[in-house]
Design a binder for these strands. Structure first.
Length: 584
RNA sequence: GCGCCCGUAGCUCAGCUGGAUAGAGCAGUGGGUUUCUAACCCACCGGUCGAAGGUUCGAUUCCUUCCGGGCGUACCA
């Protein structure tokens, strides 16, 4: 008999495996049953599609194999109906008692029956990672929230997650900025200048860098000085970093992104390791000199002329490029941090860079058995389908976006919140507005570009944050009205009868499998899709199945189902970094 | 030129790693509230899945070629 703690899907997997073993022999028991939720209720709740693939392997008609397996899956405790259809689909209808049981197990479980993965390893996730001395802008949104969602999901499943904010506090841009500031007579007493000022200074520096070759040269030399530990350069640099970090923390707090000071492992951290990395790389024989620079030629990369494309480790002026830093960071992560999985949440435009980096790491044997993954994402576009800019053509400040979101959310909500204080209303507007922005980003396939569109984000229908939040709010409202606590429900009372209850319960059982998918694909939008479907099924249930007005036994069952739905919604939103709210 | 990514309903997007009749929202049409939040639900309308081949019992999904768009392509990150 199957473990009572096992999820519904596990129980079905085991049942099919046992049936396969009985029908075809133990050697086939391990075959993936290819269990899928059915698209249409007329095909039952789930379907096992293994007969077709097995048919090919064994050289037998799939339909016949399906019949043989189905023979062993007679209706009983777990299944109420088993049918073979089409080329060899085995359609499974779960029995009422099994569905009740599975739902009760979830309700009883603190983790909603999501198992902790065995042999959990360490995952290092590199995300957020803004450049210092620049105000955070729309370009920093995606890495921050996608990385955060992935971190939360992996963490919940029991992986050890080490967040790394690979802060861009080192490099050419600092040469420009420091050189300009020092020329203007700044010193470390330039403290107190806001991030806004720095942004403006950065613009000036960049302009001068592009226009004035002498300045550009001095800026490059300034980088070399900084990297060599020149005192005045370092002091001024530190004051810039402090202001940047203060600003960054503020934005992350507003965004609900869980990156704090302890996660900062800036590029400068690796500075002292760079010479060693170059030496170690030289020792492997991979490092060669080309046009005055120290480079590696990874296999399979070509430049415009069809010549081998190098990864530049040390520039011809002696400075280190970001490839050197990335190599050092990779070694640190698999070495000292003991990562089994190293995940980079970075814009898709850097795909080539990461492909080269991973190729080099593999070819010189530096991966230490870890898996390296680039979680690439597309660009946020404006209405003109060009990268999102202000009307004046400037970068869109992240703070500005969050403020606008809050303002817009305030105008669509409000009148239902009797008795709410202004502070509560403000907080709610922020929760709804910011969530809408985040969810719009997380809910579409990350590799694609998308157009930033307020109306779509704050829409109350469709796959949006407010729609999901509303489903939760409706559930909370029932419990408030009914004066019942979501925690004090008897799982034994669950008795699923109505079709709307059934569909809801079946979908609830897919939570664990959904999180598996997110963890392997590193695609948060799959969780969004699951939650949207869940919210939609709950709304349907809500329309057709009165809860508080039902007679006692039915009421208890529906309360339990509502509570479970509420908890799954809350968990899902939490894992996405979306605010869960009680009223709206 | 080469490499990577994208192309699904008028619009915005899903499609569970190859499964049954390709699904949602918006827009359009028509319904639903003395009932737990109508920020909701129900119905209708809407598709040669960019094109053509191929592999397969089965292709939106995998392979090839082409078309269209985006990005990248040696000292910025």
């Amino acid at each position: 008999m199957s473990d009572l703690q096992a999820s519904l899907i596990d129980a079905l997997q085991q049942a099919v495996a046992a049936a396969v073993a009985a029908a075809l022999g133990d050697e086939h028991a391990g075959t993936d049953p290819l269990l899928r939720p059915s698209k249409d209720t007329k095909f039952g709740d789930f379907q096992a599609n293994l007969a077709m693939s097995l048919g090919k392997k064994l050289g037998k008609p799939p339909r016949q194999l399906a019949d043989m397996i189905a023979q062993q899956l007679q209706p009983g405790d777990l299944l109420s109906k088993v049918e073979v259809a089409g080329p060899g689909f085995i359609n499974l209808t779960v029995s009422a008692q099994a569905l009740n049981r599975a739902t009760a197990v979830m309700l009883k479980s603190e983790r909603l029956a999501v198992p902790l993965i065995q042999a959990a390893g360490t995952a290092v996730i590199d995300y957020g990672s803004p450049n210092c001395a620049k105000e955070m802008h729309i370009g920093h949104l995606r890495s921050s929230i996608i990385g955060d969602a992935i971190s939360r999901v992996l963490e919940f499943r029991g992986e050890r997650v080490i967040r790394q904010n690979h802060l861009g506090d080192w490099g050419t841009q600092f040469g420009m900025l420091l050189e300009l500031l020092l020329e203007q007579g700044w010193s470390s007493s330039g403290e107190g200048s806001s991030i806004h000022d720095l942004d403006e200074l950065y613009r000036q520096a960049k302009q001068k860098f592009d226009a004035d070759a002498g300045f550009a040269e001095r800026a490059r030399m300034r980088v070399v000085k900084l990297q060599a530990g020149d005192e005045p350069s370092l002091k001024l640099w530190q004051s810039l970093i402090n202001e940047s970090a203060r600003h960054m923390n503020e934005v992350f707090r507003l965004l609900g992104v869980r990156l704090t000071d302890k996660d900062i492992r800036p590029e400068s951290f690796y500075n002292s390791r760079l010479p060693q990395v170059v030496e170690a790389l030289r020792a492997t024989g991979a490092l060669v000199e080309s046009e005055g620079a120290q480079v590696v030629f990874p296999n399979g990369f070509k430049d415009r002329e069809g010549e081998p494309l190098p990864m530049i480790v040390q520039k011809s002026d002696g400075g280190f490029g970001y490839a050197a830093t990335d190599l050092a960071a990779a070694r640190f992560r698999v070495g000292e941090l003991q990562a089994k999985r190293v995940i980079y949440v970075v814009d898709a435009r850097q795909s080539d860079h990461f492909a080269m980096l991973f190729t080099v790491l593999n070819s010189v044997g530096w991966t230490n058995g870890a898996e390296f993954e680039h979680v690439a994402f597309g660009t946020i576009l404006g209405a003109d389908k060009k990268p999102f800019k202000t009307r004046a053509g400037g970068t869109v400040r992240l703070i500005e976006v969050l403020e606008e979101a809050t303002k817009r959310a305030a105008t669509v909500s409000g009148e239902k919140l009797e008795g709410a204080s202004d502070a509560e209303r403000a907080e709610l507007s922020r929760a709804v507005g910011v969530s809408a922005v985040k969810y719009a980003d997380l809910s579409s396939d990350r590799i694609k570009d998308y157009v930033f569109d307020w109306d779509r984000m704050l829409a109350l229908e469709g796959n949006t944050a407010p729609y999901l939040q509303n489903a939760y709010v409706r559930i909370r409202s029932i419990f408030r009205k009914g004066e019942v606590s979501m925690e004090q429900l008897d799982p034994a009372m669950i008795n699923i009868e109505a079709p709307e209850e059934r569909m809801l319960a079946v979908h609830l059982s897919l939570l664990s499998a959904t999180l598996d998918q997110v963890a392997t694909s590193l695609e948060p939008h799959r969780l969004c899709g699951y939650l949207y479907e869940l919210a939609s099924l709950y709304h349907r249930f809500y329309e057709h199945c009165p809860v508080l007005k039902a007679e006692t036994a039915v009421k208890q069952s529906r309360l339990a189902l509502s509570a479970l739905t509420g908890r799954v919604l809350a968990l899902g939103l939490e894992l996405l970094g979306i605010s869960v709210i009680e009223r709206m």
